[in-house]
């Protein structure tokens, strides 16, 4: 949005300016404060603005056929930052992630209240074009899901459906995306082989390349490394560091080391609630909530 704000590194952030926090006690919704940077709060001297939020969730409740899965979630995701979501299985991380590009629409019987803002607009408004939203907010799934097509066709699929027809444009885009996903060197000689012949790690990077090929602004990653060996995981983690310059990444992970390694911000969720959200180093070294301490010290989960 506005470009006149200084960029702050996460290390400088202080707890008061955590962009968003859980629970009902904080009715002031700090996320709002940050996103609307013109407000008085933010312009006070000395206040440290962490960055420009690209997506914001306000008071989000979600239930699957009456069963509540998300309870009053308030969170903001800063541009060109990596935000990690952690929490025990079934706490609603994937659900929250899917809310951000409306993939929950595919589920029968979902009910959503609250606001999910992207670029200041509620993405659940009826006039929002879902496919346009999903092009801008891309997603990489836990289980790699390449199409049963060639490697080239997999990456070219997105651009094609968005109207790119020129073969050389496509070729360039495919090459760039594969390079960005650190897969190019491995597959350059067999672009027209079936994608299903790649290894698991390669397939996952292919899915990342496929997501990058549509030139999104935000990349949602749902446990992208859960099925991979440490080497492939390391590759993808390196990749995320590289991608940060251009994209905003939101990653769900069970691997706390991973969250600590790669992310700038971390949110801890429990039973549908966002318990704590803040700068990663702060959350891991000095969490506020007892439940967060219990979780990261391995007392449950």
């Amino acid at each position: 949005m506005s470009s006149n704000k200084p960029n702050m590194t996460p290390e400088n952030a202080s707890p008061q300016y955590i962009p968003g926090s859980a629970g009902g006690e904080n009715e002031k919704k700090p996320g709002v404060r940050i996103s609307s940077g013109n407000r008085a709060d933010n312009s006070t001297p000395g206040s440290k603005i962490l960055g420009e939020p690209i997506m914001e969730v306000r008071g989000l409740n979600l239930s699957y056929s009456g069963k509540q899965a998300l309870k009053n979630i308030n969170i903001a995701f800063l541009k060109n930052r990596i935000t990690a979501l952690i929490g025990p299985s079934g706490c609603g991380k994937s659900t929250l992630l899917r809310c951000l590009n409306r993939m929950n629409d595919l589920v029968d019987g979902v009910e959503i209240t609250g606001e999910t803002l992207f670029g200041g607009r509620n993405i659940y408004q009826p006039f929002i074009h879902v496919s346009e939203l999903r092009k801008t907010v891309g997603m990489v799934f836990q289980k790699s899901n390449p199409f049963p097509k060639s490697i080239f066709e997999n990456v070219a699929y997105g651009p094609r459906i968005h109207g790119v027809k020129n073969q050389s444009d496509l070729g360039g885009l495919v090459e760039r995306s594969l390079k960005a996903a650190a897969l190019w060197e491995e597959v350059r000689d067999r672009l027209h082989d079936s994608a299903l012949g790649l290894s698991g790690g390669q397939q996952q990077r292919l899915c990342i390349a496929r997501a990058l090929a549509v030139e999104p602004e935000v990349l949602l990653m749902d446990e992208p490394c859960s099925a991979l060996d440490p080497i492939a995981t390391a590759k993808i983690e390196d990749l995320m560091g590289d991608l940060k310059d251009k994209y905003t990444i939101i990653i769900v992970t069970h691997n706390m080391q991973q969250a600590a390694r790669v992310s700038d911000f971390t949110g801890f969720m429990l039973m549908g609630e966002l318990v704590e959200f803040g700068v990663t180093t702060k959350l891991f070294q000095n969490p506020d909530d007892k439940r967060t301490i219990d979780y990261i010290t391995g007392r449950f989960g």
Partner: peptide, 27 residues
């Protein structure tokens, strides 16, 4: 057809029709 294929296509911004024709039908 495994739902993750459909999800993969939709997540790239394909419309349901594009997904049906380009991913589901060939598969």
């Amino acid at each position: 057809i495994p739902p993750h294929l459909r999800a993969g296509s939709l997540a790239l911004g394909a419309t349901p029709w594009q997904t049906a024709i380009r991913v589901i039908l060939p598969a």
